[in-house]
């Protein structure tokens, strides 16, 4: 005989606890990964902008625009960097990676700005742009645009992997808990079945002798107690002690 109702709340409780763990872990992960990866990308962009700025000084002073462009082209091959442009101290665009042209929003922006700024460029996407001055700004400024969509994709992927792992643990945990509960419920079912048989059979001599009686646990004790009661009947004082109504 199966025990259906006794562990219903237990099962629900286990599922709720695991679900809570999954949700809270995912939320924490989302926050941590988003914050850390965004910060990391911003720092990387700043470093790249600074590297380009440092490397550009001699090239700019030599007025070698081809080498300057070649330098910029190499850095834009780094994953996540979508554009780089270098402006002169007067705001002239000396090298850039835009095709088919420099977006209007960038043309209108402050070419000396080096603080991180978020940009939405039509047809290109969303970016976070950082800048670095060349020769303290007197030779121009390097601007590096990091693709926020790539950052978002990385964050989504990192969180997805985390959630996937926790979800697998949730499924395995719930299945394991169901199995454990069923394992615990099995002797109780046997006891219940035994008690039902005892209640149906009034012939003292033909009372069943089952495995459950041999158990060395609480269920075994209860089974033997039921058998004793069935054979000898309840003690009168025990009946009197039974609370009424």
């Amino acid at each position: 005989m199966k025990i259906q109702k006794l562990f219903q709340r237990t099962r629900f409780g286990i599922f709720a606890i695991f679900g809570g763990i999954v949700l809270s872990t995912s939320a924490l992960c989302l926050y941590t990964v988003d914050t850390q990866l965004s910060a990391e990308y911003e720092i990387n962009s700043k470093n790249i902008a600074k590297t380009v700025a440092d490397s550009s000084v001699d090239i700019l002073l030599n007025r070698d625009m081809a080498t300057l462009q070649s330098l910029v082209d190499q850095f834009v091959e780094i994953q996540g960097i979508r554009y780089i442009y270098i402006t002169s101290e007067t705001g002239e665009y000396l090298a850039h990676t835009f095709v088919p042209g420099i977006p209007e929003e960038i043309l209108r922006s402050d070419h000396r700005n080096t603080e991180p700024v978020e940009r939405e460029l039509p047809g290109l996407g969303n970016f976070i742009e950082v800048g670095s001055p060349i020769l303290a700004g007197v030779a121009g400024t390097v601007h590096v645009g990091m693709d926020l969509d790539v950052v978002a994709l990385k964050i989504t992927r990192a969180i997805g992997q985390q959630v996937y792992l926790v979800s697998i643990i949730l499924v395995i945990g719930v299945l394991a808990s169901i199995w454990l509960v069923n394992l615990a419920a099995k002797p109780l079912g046997e006891l219940l079945a035994y008690a039902v048989e005892l209640a149906r059979d009034n012939d003292e001599q033909s009372l069943p002798d089952r495995e459950v009686l041999a158990r060395d646990d609480e269920v075994g004790h209860l089974a033997r107690l039921f058998l004793y009661v069935a054979r000898n009947g309840p003690r009168p004082d025990a009946l009197e002690a039974t609370p009424q109504g």
């Binding site: 081809a66 070649s70 082209d73």
Partner: peptide, 11 residues
Amino acid sequence: QADAYGRSGWA
């Protein structure tokens, strides 16, 4: 051309 060649001519 958006590369060193194009930039050289642009310059």
